[in-house]
């Protein structure tokens, strides 16, 4: 293998895109070629700079709103064009049912400020944002005694932090987030390969049981209040998994 050809193959190696034979061949070359070893080191350094740079640009809220409005326009006109008038009654009835179910299942921002002080959309946005490269955790640790003190002085409250690795929900860290304009603690759990965010903020409202699940854009959440804290767990895991974690946290 000549150095000329390895200069390209090196990138396939760096990106994990070589098959096993070619990767082994490249590694053998690497043992005897200092030039290529330095070049690989340089590429690794460049990659880590790019990934740590925070240069990923999330969609601004204004764009999110415009896209939603476009979607509404596109869907509404379709309904208007295709559905005969008598069906509107049925549609209205269906919407009423959906609305009442949503009112029950969603964090109830629509209702009053004394309920969960954030909307389902804000919740999902916060969850999705956390999944972007480099956004998930501010403190990485599976040790609750590391994660908990990390929040000290960063928030006006102390979130309860527990690890449930034995139950299949490993604590992987925490971060500060903003939900409904408030600073909140986000505890990050891993369930197999899925990420669960548990948002925690203080509340003066009385305890509630774990509310029925909410669903939006493929993400589910469970919301409850317990001992002066408001909790919302959100993820793409199944609702039974989410409910299990909610119960563990509730204890």
């Amino acid at each position: 293998m000549s150095c000329d050809s390895t200069r390209t193959v090196l990138h396939g190696y760096l990106d994990g895109e070589l098959d096993a034979t070619r990767a082994a061949e490249f590694e053998r070359h690497l043992e005897n070629c200092r030039e290529c070893a330095v070049a690989l080191g340089a590429e690794e350094s460049l990659r880590s700079s790019l990934q740590r740079s925070g240069l990923y640009e999330n969609a601004p809220v204004s764009l999110r709103k415009k896209v939603r409005a476009d979607l509404d326009a596109a869907t509404a006109s379709s309904v208007a064009l295709r559905i005969p008038a008598w069906r509107w009654l049925a549609l209205a009835a269906a919407l009423l049912i959906v609305a009442s179910v949503s009112w029950y299942a969603w964090p109830r921002v629509q209702n009053s400020a004394s309920s969960a002080p954030f909307t389902a959309a804000e919740l999902i946005d916060a969850h999705v944002r956390s999944l972007q490269p480099g956004h998930l955790t501010d403190v990485v640790s599976s040790d609750q005694h590391t994660v908990k003190p990390w929040f000290n002085g960063k928030l006006a409250f102390v979130p309860p932090v527990k690890d449930f690795a034995d139950e299949g929900f490993a604590l992987i860290g925490g971060r500060l987030d903003v939900l409904g304009g408030q600073n909140v603690a986000a505890l990050v759990y891993a369930r197999r390969k899925h990420i669960i965010n548990v948002f925690v903020l203080p509340t003066k409202e009385p305890d509630t049981p774990i509310h029925p699940p909410g669903l939006r854009q493929g993400y589910q959440w469970r919301h409850w209040r317990h001992q002066g804290m408001e909790y919302c767990a959100v993820s793409d895991v199944s609702d039974s998994d989410l409910y299990e974690l909610a119960q563990l946290l509730y204890q």
Partner: peptide, 15 residues
């Protein structure tokens, strides 16, 4: 379906 499949990639689109 669009909301479920495509909309979550709005950040990627903007980036």
């Amino acid at each position: 379906r669009f909301e479920q499949l495509v909309l979550p990639h709005l950040d990627a689109a903007f980036n």
